[in-house]
Design a binder for these strands. Structure first.
Length: 358
DNA sequence: TCTGGGGTCCTAGGACCC
DNA sequence: TCTGGGGTCCTAGGACCC
């Protein structure tokens, strides 16, 4: 028996949930995003495979998607509650599989830790169980750590299974661009390319001191390991503890007056505070995010004198921070983030440099 | 062509202390 | 007059992920 990490990823999750409750949409290009109005400022959350065939994808502005979409395309509003419910069903189905440890990493994906001889068999039974319970399809990546399992899933899509380990890492990934690695985005891949590192193999062979010099002691080391496909292998089922909550809004019409800005800040700060209060967690810091028209983002924050559970104090802090905004510029987006104190005033989990919930 | 909303973690630099 | 080295805390911003 050996230890394996399985990464389960739902296929076109949001679009699939929508089609499930409106079977008449099956086979049509379905695009979910914003309030479902493609003339508004919003982006695509998920496009069905039929829509992707027209070049429509996640993160794309709805206006662009509308231009690419064929006549029979359907635009739908985001329905968080429906996806939350479907997600719960998927996760509890997987958690009930014998001998698995489950770590949720998003609405539509999770890691499973198993100790077996035949991980493919586990993957197939996971797919069958989820399909039976929810009517939804998923893909499964099998790896000897989380990094390889996560990347493997892409090769399994849709509805498939793929195994990626130390044995076939370079064969499968060696000639791929560094951008294909989990945790390497457009900026990092460009900086790597400036050092002549354009493939995963090159990254694996890169001089570690150069990486540390360029990216710092933690990220430099991490990127080097990523090139080799190394990474954490422990699947941890301890419940997630949020570190902060935020609320932000993009205005359909930019805000132009101070009164409008203050009103929006009160509203957002109140909601962000309420999200923290719902977990009985004091707020420690308040951050503001502002996007000035047309598209320049700034963030800044302030530590409160002491952790507080006073709603008005958090709102006042946000309003106070708002006074430092540039008065001569139109505000396109505002956000308030409330950073919470940790429940035991300590760090609940060992961190790794991969952003998010690895 | 026009760019959401919810998160996490890392780094650099300055202030301040001993 | 010119100056150390180490540590911590804080702020601002960068980058990435789903």
């Amino acid at each position: 028996m050996a230890d394996w990490v399985l990464h389960v990823d739902m296929d076109q999750f949001i679009a699939a949930v929508e089609v499930l409750r409106r079977p008449e949409l099956a086979g049509r290009p379905v695009i979910v995003g914003g309030r479902g109005d493609p003339t508004e400022r919003a982006v695509v959350s998920t496009a069905s495979y039929e829509a992707r065939a027209f070049g429509i994808g996640s993160g794309m502005p709805l206006k662009i998607a509308a231009r690419k979409a064929p006549e029979d395309a359907v635009f739908l509003p985001v329905d968080h509650d429906a996806y939350e419910a479907a997600s719960h069903e998927v996760m509890s189905t997987l958690r009930a599989l014998p001998g698995v440890v489950l770590e949720v990493i998003g609405w539509d994906e999770c890691f499973l830790g198993v100790s077996v001889d035949d991980p493919e068999a586990v993957a197939r039974s996971a797919q069958a169980a989820v399909l039976e319970a929810t009517g939804l399809h998923c893909s499964v990546g099998i790896g000897d750590n989380k990094v390889r399992a996560k990347i493997a899933t892409e090769f399994g899509k849709p509805r498939g299974v793929f195994r990626l380990t130390a044995e076939n890492w370079f064969e499968v990934m060696g000639d791929k661009p560094t951008r294909d690695l989990w945790g390497v985005g457009p900026k990092i891949s460009r900086r790597l390319a400036e050092h002549g590192i354009d493939t995963v193999r090159r990254l694996a062979e890169a001089d570690r001191e150069m990486l540390v010099g360029e990216f710092g002691p933690r990220m430099g080391v991490w990127y080097g390991e990523l090139g080799e496909g190394r990474g954490p292998a422990v699947v941890d089922d301890t419940p997630w503890v949020a570190r902060s909550h935020s609320r932000e809004t993009t205005f359909q019409q930019n805000l132009t007056t101070e009164a409008e800005v203050e009103e929006a800040l009160r509203e957002l700060a109140g909601h962000a505070f309420d999200d923290c209060a719902a977990e009985s967690r004091p707020v420690m810091r308040v951050h503001l995010k502002v996007r000035y028209a047309p598209f320049e983002t700034k963030t800044f924050g302030r530590k409160l004198p002491a952790p507080t559970t006073d709603r008005d104090e958090v709102i006042a802090a946000a309003v106070e921070l708002g006074k430092t905004l540039d008065r001569d510029r139109e505000v396109r987006l505002l956000g308030v983030r409330a950073e919470m104190t940790m429940p035991d005033d300590g760090d609940p989990v060992e961190r790794t440099p991969v952003r998010g919930r690895i």
